[in-house]
């Protein structure tokens, strides 16, 4: 494997030294491009109190291409599907090499605070979120309690 670019080393160091509040990202022992991520559910959101595991991978041409991020913990959210894939513009066409792992994870945390049912990935969830928001929020809280609180 090619040597790790300075950019990735710097980003990793900074993530360890000045972690973002509510987010931890630790590189895998055997693969410095693979990160184990834990995002805490934001306050005043249905995900409050939950710890959500994600995986983040930096592809070969990072930062020219966006990192690949996926939720591992099950989550009830209109922009995240059953497989944990995330509908977020900066992970797709709005990616810019000037963005970082840190900014990506912050955007994901912000997405938990502000779900966007108009741009949905999980259709059934989004539909409920629009038609009956209180029930959707109840489901989200229930899922958080069931899947994101035990460990």
């Amino acid at each position: 494997m090619a040597a790790l670019p300075r950019r990735i080393i710097k980003e990793t160091q900074r993530l360890m030294q000045e972690p973002v509040p509510g987010i931890s990202a630790v590189p895998d022992d055997s693969n410095a491009r693979y990160f184990h991520v834990i995002v805490t559910g934001p306050e005043d959101s249905p995900f409050e109190g939950g710890l959500f595991k994600l995986e983040l991978f930096l592809p070969e041409d990072y930062p020219m291409s966006a990192p690949k991020v996926r939720f591992i913990t099950k989550i009830y959210h209109p922009n995240i599907d059953r497989l944990g894939r995330i509908c977020l513009d900066i992970l797709k066409d709005k990616w810019s090499p000037a963005l970082q792992i840190r900014t990506v994870l912050l955007s994901i945390q912000a997405l938990l605070s502000a779900p966007n049912p108009d741009d949905p990935l999980a259709n059934d969830v989004a539909e409920l979120w629009k038609v009956n928001e209180s029930e959707a929020i109840r489901n989200a809280k229930e899922w958080t309690r069931r899947y994101a609180m035990d460990n």
């Binding site: 599907d81 894939r85 509908c87 797709k92 066409d93 741009d119 949905p120 990935l121 999980a122 259709n123």
Partner: peptide
């Protein structure tokens, strides 16, 4: 090839 219904055309954006 993904679940999101907000599409952006690769060709003409």
């Amino acid at each position: 090839n993904g679940g999101c219904n907000h599409m952006q055309c690769y060709n003409c954006k």
